[in-house]
Design a protein around this nucleic acid. Sequence first.
DNA 1: CAGCAAAGTGGAAGCGCTTACAGTCAGCGT
DNA 2: ACGCTGACTGTAAGCGCTTCCACTTTGCTG
Lengths: 344, 344
Amino acid sequence: MPEDPPNSAPAHGPTIYEVARRAGVSIATVSRALRDTGPVAPRTRAKVLAAVEELRFTPSRLGVSLAEGRHAANGIVFPDLSGPYYAEVVLGYEEVASELGRSVIILSARGRSNVRDQVKDLAGRVDGLVVFGHTVDDATVRELMAAGLPVVLLARAPIAGADLVASENIATAGVLTEHLLGHGYRDLTMLGASTGDDIGERWAGVTRALSAHGLTAGPPVPCEFTVDGGLAAGRDLLRRRTRPEAVICADDQVALGMLLAAEELGLDVPGDLAVTGWDDIMAARHARPALSTVRQPMRELGARAARALDELITGARATTRHQTLATELVVRTSCGEHPPQEDL
Amino acid sequence: MPEDPPNSAPAHGPTIYEVARRAGVSIATVSRALRDTGPVAPRTRAKVLAAVEELRFTPSRLGVSLAEGRHAANGIVFPDLSGPYYAEVVLGYEEVASELGRSVIILSARGRSNVRDQVKDLAGRVDGLVVFGHTVDDATVRELMAAGLPVVLLARAPIAGADLVASENIATAGVLTEHLLGHGYRDLTMLGASTGDDIGERWAGVTRALSAHGLTAGPPVPCEFTVDGGLAAGRDLLRRRTRPEAVICADDQVALGMLLAAEELGLDVPGDLAVTGWDDIMAARHARPALSTVRQPMRELGARAARALDELITGARATTRHQTLATELVVRTSCGEHPPQEDL
DNA sequence: CAGCAAAGTGGAAGCGCTTACAGTCAGCGT
DNA sequence: ACGCTGACTGTAAGCGCTTCCACTTTGCTG
């Protein structure tokens, strides 16, 4: 690392001092003129603005933030973001945060060992933080909250004292299950084992719906939550002596892998096998057979989180709140034949 | 907006002063002990660390940055990010930036009128900026560069003095065209009019390849760069008296829409019509027929941009550099039948 | 044992801005 | 003509940290 000279003038722009000198006023006046935070004579203001213009002055955020004691920035920690799901949520978040005048600093936790340190660093740069999924251990989250940092949890298990925004899983999993039962399937398999998170909730919903019909299913089959994971698990599953009638996949990527596996083995979906996903990512609509799945309001999840965080930061709300957004079963063709109707 | 009292103790954590007092040393010593930037006696260091531990002290980034004169953060401005393409690039960027010890502040330009102001604010928060596509007008970019801010351009037209990272378009467009010609198609249609950007380059490549064979094509057909745009344009195009033999779409989303249109009209792809995309987004692999397309190294684009920016910021490199990343034709089935072979 | 260098430490000056607080001045009421 | 009020403006004290410098202490070398 090239040790650059101590005072190598970081090429930063002009400071408020230069503007003040040029306008022939004090820095206090410049500040007031710019933020309209006190009386400034019209003539003076004009001089200041002229100087600002000539120097192309933009106040240093650092200086402003240090003096104001706030960052005007929010952070978000997300799991992988590789798939389309997380990206959409982050986008929805950024959109609203931006409207609220806050920058967004992102931190991906994908395969990082030092997330804890990175999160703590991040915490020092923002006025509030969104923790997406189980990317940060509870102890760290509590510590941040204890330090006075507003935190909003997104799509994960709650923590006392923190806001939570999540989408509904259990009920819709029930609806999905009922739908499959309606097709006449009785032997359902859950693909993608997981507990304590949204996927665990989905399985709970499925199980509950089944038992309401006096049915049971085996435990969820382990599977990595990727297309390749679904493909591998699918190959394995479909070559067994007794093939399931329907496979409920933990998410769309797994389901897409499953579709690939079925195709590879010459099985017809939904003829020989029904498959469902969860999320309704873009590829779900375009797969053939088109994937039946559950749509999550991804952008809305992010947007809600941004608003909730803003309320916490500005102090507009002091109590914590849990929001659950409705999800919707999207019936396409991978789960079985349906009377023709408009949908895609 | 609730005007909170001037000194409402922002609940910020302990400062270096409190640590110093508790450890019975000066703040200078605390700083040295923490950053290992000067001699500190073992005993002293221990005391400091103990105090840090007890107080759960984390240095304020604001203070550090202001004193250091750097943010340890990078910005990235991207167009829409709705599709999978931009998200991947941003991810690749974040990953590398994070490794290099820099936070990433994102700014989406989607449908915003005040991008210019937002970018200038962003510029004040970072040590360098990546401008993705034509999200920021050239004048503003130049202004930022003139102010000494390192800038890396991503997937867009170059600007003198700024680094550029882009993926190859022209040559691969030629390869794609040759491939289609190899299938025997002569009547090719370009879908998605655009000039002066990467899509414009693709059309240039296609046109050049065609003329090398003494062929020509009509001008690119206008079309919004979304699935629905492709669908609408496809309906229109395929109902004309003379249907094209092959449609080269500006990107995968348009191509997916085209596929939908063909399906809707009962046309067989590739039997009645060949379709190609560009980007190789996830859905391209899963569509049926699977979409032939051109793969862009999306993550790598972002990663390169991050590294280039880092070089500029640290001063490891002073000259500007243009990097073009290779792209690859991915032959699937939407462009015609091929002898069976391994690929997906 | 004087004389020095090195190690360890504290003081204090910024970094760029916001914002009490304290002046300065002109216009008014009486 | 004189104090008073307001409108303006400047001074200076932070915000939390890094780091240059100067000053003490050792620990050794001649």
